[in-house]
Design a protein around this nucleic acid. Structure first.
Lengths: 212, 212
DNA sequence: CAGCTTTCGCTACGGCTCGTAGCGTATCTG
DNA sequence: CAGATACGCTACGAGCCGTAGCGAAAGCTG
């Protein structure tokens, strides 16, 4: 995960405690649930983790970095089981993502760090590598499977194919996040079904009218 | 806007200064640009606005409420000029929304208050009434125009029509926000065009396969 | 006009968090 | 063993929070 800030010098001393690492990240998630973003403090996390406050600062520069790493782990739970059709693949990942966003630590943290990242370039990069880019794999494998099934045409131009993948990623992730967090309405199977139909229709249209 | 906290008792004293109100909201937006969300402080805003800190607390309970009101004003700039076709209507609003999210005060504040609202029910309600619900009008008028032109069928069932509008709203707003803030890629005309094609295709498919 | 009500700016305060420094101890490497 | 690093602990100045108390200003009402 490349999570903590690497010790600047080379090896040769007491290694950092791995138990402390996991305890801190777990404590951070729990603190997010109990306190939310603004009321979460470094000192509180340290106490919960049974660790000195200085230990936190030796590994993370601040609250934002800590929370990014604490939440990034959760996103790796997402999977794309091969359900046999593109429609059910999409519905599955939508519902999984919605369930993930239903957990209080996830929803609070994700928006907060994104907000912070808008005026913090290194943090933005950290989010991109730790969270965003890792989830694009879901779109790519989903498309590959659909193409193997013959449900989607193969886009010959590599650049165009990449743009389409990015577009789909933003549409799916964005819509679910907006529905769940901004509109604050439930992402249930009904909604997932309607949304999936919309996407499939759009993909079909884009496939026919290729020369956009 | 119903922004500030209403004075609990009835009228009959010195009225609150309207100049102070606008100065505070403007100072808040500027502070967001300069400092970002976490480093923005009530005291700093007060100084910028040329107002006592106590005056801020007489009107807003805290940072979140203040920022919501400061940003809500900006969203009212969005318009839906009747461009003659649904496609260009969508592209227009997408680009407008993207331009709005390009402004540092907007992007920082929007995500931050949404994050805060996940563990603050009154704040969530404030966001809903001050920002979210007011922008759904764009979807509704856009649909009405498209139906008048014959571009979209009229959905007979009121409940279904409302769900469709909510879906489209979440998809458009969510995709633009995700593209601009999470993926941190530009929302240019190219992207807007591709996205619009996707939406239109989805709408067409949903219209034909009505009995979802 | 006089009197009531509310807001305003200002100052001050206790409480909390921040992020760092310093120390002695613990743990691992060569 | 010597060197290097991490650890827990304590303490600290700095900054911000949100509130209280004051005298003065500015409207409304009769």
């Amino acid at each position: 995960m490349q999570s903590r800030s690497t010790p600047p010098t080379r090896a040769g001393g007491r290694p950092r405690s791995a138990e402390a690492d996991t305890a801190i990240l777990e404590a951070t998630r729990q603190a997010l649930v109990d306190l939310g973003w603004t009321k979460l403090t470094m000192g509180d996390v340290a106490t919960r983790a049974g660790v000195a406050k200085t230990t936190l600062y030796r590994r993370w520069a601040g609250k934002s970095e800590l929370v990014v790493d604490a939440v990034a782990e959760l996103f790796d739970e997402l999977e794309l089981p091969d359900s046999g059709s593109l429609a059910t693949d999409i519905e599955s990942v939508v519902l999984q993502f919605a369930a993930l966003l239903g957990r209080p630590e996830t929803k609070t943290a994700l928006m907060a760090v994104v907000a912070e990242s808008t005026s913090d370039e290194p943090l933005r990069e950290r989010i991109r590598t730790s969270i965003v880019d890792r989830q694009k794999r879901l779109v790519l494998t989903g498309r590959a499977r659909a193409q193997a099934r013959g449900e989607l045409p193969v886009e010959p131009d590599t650049a165009t194919a990449a743009m389409t993948a990015d577009l789909i990623f933003d549409v799916i992730a964005g819509a679910v996040v907006h529905r769940a967090l901004v509109s604050a309405e439930p992402v249930d199977t009904e909604w997932a079904h309607r949304f999936t139909l919309l996407i499939l229709g759009g993909l079909a249209a884009a496939a026919s009218g290729q020369g956009a």
